[in-house]
Design a protein around this nucleic acid. Structure first.
Length: 504
DNA sequence: GAGTTTGAAACT
DNA sequence: CAGTTTCAAACTC
């Protein structure tokens, strides 16, 4: 079973802080009858062991790993997505802080939906409300008041909170890394709000569009002026009108196109093959010399061109907590169970193994047969392949993060009405921005983390900066990925090269 | 802190 | 898939 087991940090509640404000680890569950082995249990649902909880007869711990594992499998059997975050793109951390400031996150996507009947979706019984998001057309709630324009919701949060929500969302979108290919798909056109496109990708600079980000009245409830009819008990969610809710789009949604991903994958495969090719040629050369000397011993490890610095760099990557876990902001504080970790790794294993097994190395490398004579050589090639692919993939991700941040800035500047920044980012195209603005734009270079500190923090760039310098294979492929993704490559001088093609 | 309400999860 | 039961969190007093 290769089920991916995505884990989320348990939603924090005010209980996560003690009275004196000292951060407390996490909320403890109080389960009594479920043995903490059902989704009723927040700990179990979040994929973490119970720790310092107040539960009774708890089996969600290492001592009961077997039964726990069975429970996980049973749960996944019922619902393969049971352990996936219910709220995509919604940072469930620091809720208390967000509540304090009222900056709700309204645009994140609820992977499921709520079915509230009595709470009006304005109490924490409602999963949407608890996650700081608006109810969606997927919800089956009755008498929902958790929609944009709701007087009741405004009474709770105030209008200012609504505006702040978008600012926060703009900032959050890049940080959460919600690359919009899977989770944040725009609703079908038939359900979409009519009118000019908003926020991303619009050519308009009119700041008034900020006010349209959340169209008033989503159809879930009549406008306040029609409040007389709201007293009539509504059935399940009325059909969403054309003025449906704004649906979150990733800041990167327009940067990454599906074919870009295909091309990226293709290029990674090509790179991988070229590594094999390079080593094969080296091997042939060595073998030829060996033949001349009538030595039929396979080339030893000394033939490896890998330098000490390369190894150190690799270790740095491996050991770098930020690098090894770029999404650690969403990882539970608690130790993950072996089963959980295993499930998390299944997908990765599958991906890597499918493309990097020795058999594939030889069969796909264009040099079938026995160009590698011993296990050490295979290991070297394997490692080199992995290094090249991961390095380039990391570079690509860094660029994506960087451009997400640029977009984020644009959104923030629009939200704040900063005329200067608005002019700087008047063109929705990233390329256009570079071409038209005189504003200093932080340029990411391999040695300047501060230019895009978030990206550098999440994916270490310095560690790998030495990895491509001595690797022939890496050199071969060093030019391909950024162009394939249509992301301006960044030169050593810090200048951003013109983009070949744009998709905005 | 006890009791009630609520809605998700589990079950039928 | 709909209805019912179980469960634990949220809420009220």
């Amino acid at each position: 079973m290769t089920t991916t087991f995505l884990l989320i940090r348990k939603p924090e509640s005010p209980k996560t802080k003690t009275k004196d404000g000292t951060p407390k680890r996490q909320k403890q569950c109080n389960c009594k009858h479920s043995k903490c082995l059902k989704l009723y249990c927040e700990c179990f649902a979040s994929g973490t062991y119970c720790e310092n909880c107040n539960c009774v007869n708890c089996h969600n711990n290492m001592e009961h790993e077997v039964s726990r594992r069975e429970a996980v499998e049973a749960t996944l059997e019922r619902n393969p997505n049971a352990f996936r975050p219910k709220i995509a793109g919604s940072p469930q951390v620091n809720r208390a802080a967000k509540e304090a400031t009222g900056d709700l996150l309204l645009l994140a996507k609820h992977n499921k939906s709520c079915h509230c009947k009595k709470s009006g979706c304005l109490k924490k019984y409602c999963e949407c409300f608890q996650a700081n998001i608006l109810c969606s057309e997927n919800c089956k709630c009755i008498d929902c008041k958790n929609f944009e324009g709701s007087e009741e919701r405004k009474a709770l949060h105030g209008d200012q909170a609504t505006n702040m929500a978008y600012i926060q969302q703009a900032a959050n979108a890049a940080i959460t890394g919600a690359v919009g290919l899977s989770g944040f798909i725009s609703p079908p056109l038939s359900k979409r709000r009519k009118g000019p496109d908003i926020f991303f990708g619009s050519s308009s600079n009119d700041l008034s569009k900020i006010a349209h980000i959340h169209p008033v009245n989503t159809g879930k409830s009549p406008a306040p002026s029609n409040s007389s009819s709201t007293s009539v008990a509504r059935s399940v969610n009325p059909p969403v009108s054309s003025l449906s809710k704004f649906t979150y789009r990733s800041l990167l949604a327009d940067i990454i196109q599906p074919h870009d991903l295909k091309e990226l994958c293709s290029n990674l495969v090509v790179m991988s093959r070229e590594v094999v090719q390079t080593y094969s040629e080296q091997e042939n050369s060595s073998a030829h010399e060996a033949t001349e000397h009538k030595i039929l011993i396979a080339t030893p490890n000394q033939n490896r061109t890998r330098t000490h610095n390369e190894a150190a760099a690799e270790n740095a990557i491996i050991n770098d907590p930020d690098c090894s876990c770029p999404d650690n902001v969403d990882m539970p504080d608690r130790p993950l169970s072996p089963g959980t970790l295993a499930l998390m790794c299944d997908e990765q294993d599958t991906l890597f193994m499918s493309n990097s097994t020795p058999n594939r190395l030889t069969s796909q490398g264009g040099n079938s047969g026995s160009q590698f004579h011993n296990v050490d050589e295979m290991t070297e090639v394997h490692a080199e392949q992995e290094k090249v692919v991961l390095t380039k993939f990391r570079d690509t991700l860094n660029r994506l993060i960087y451009f997400g941040e640029i977009k984020e800035r644009k959104c923030l500047s629009l939200a704040r009405g900063e005329a200067g920044m608005k002019d700087a980012f008047s063109n929705s195209s990233i390329n256009g921005r570079y071409a038209t603005t005189n504003q200093p734009i932080p340029i990411p270079t391999s040695n300047s983390k501060n230019a895009y500190s978030v990206a550098a923090t999440r994916i270490d760039t310095s560690a790998a900066s030495t990895t491509t310098t001595t690797s022939a294979a890496a050199t071969i492929v060093s030019n391909s990925i950024g162009q394939q993704l249509h992301i301006p490559s960044v030169g050593r001088t810090g200048n951003i090269k013109p983009k070949i093609e744009q998709h905005l």
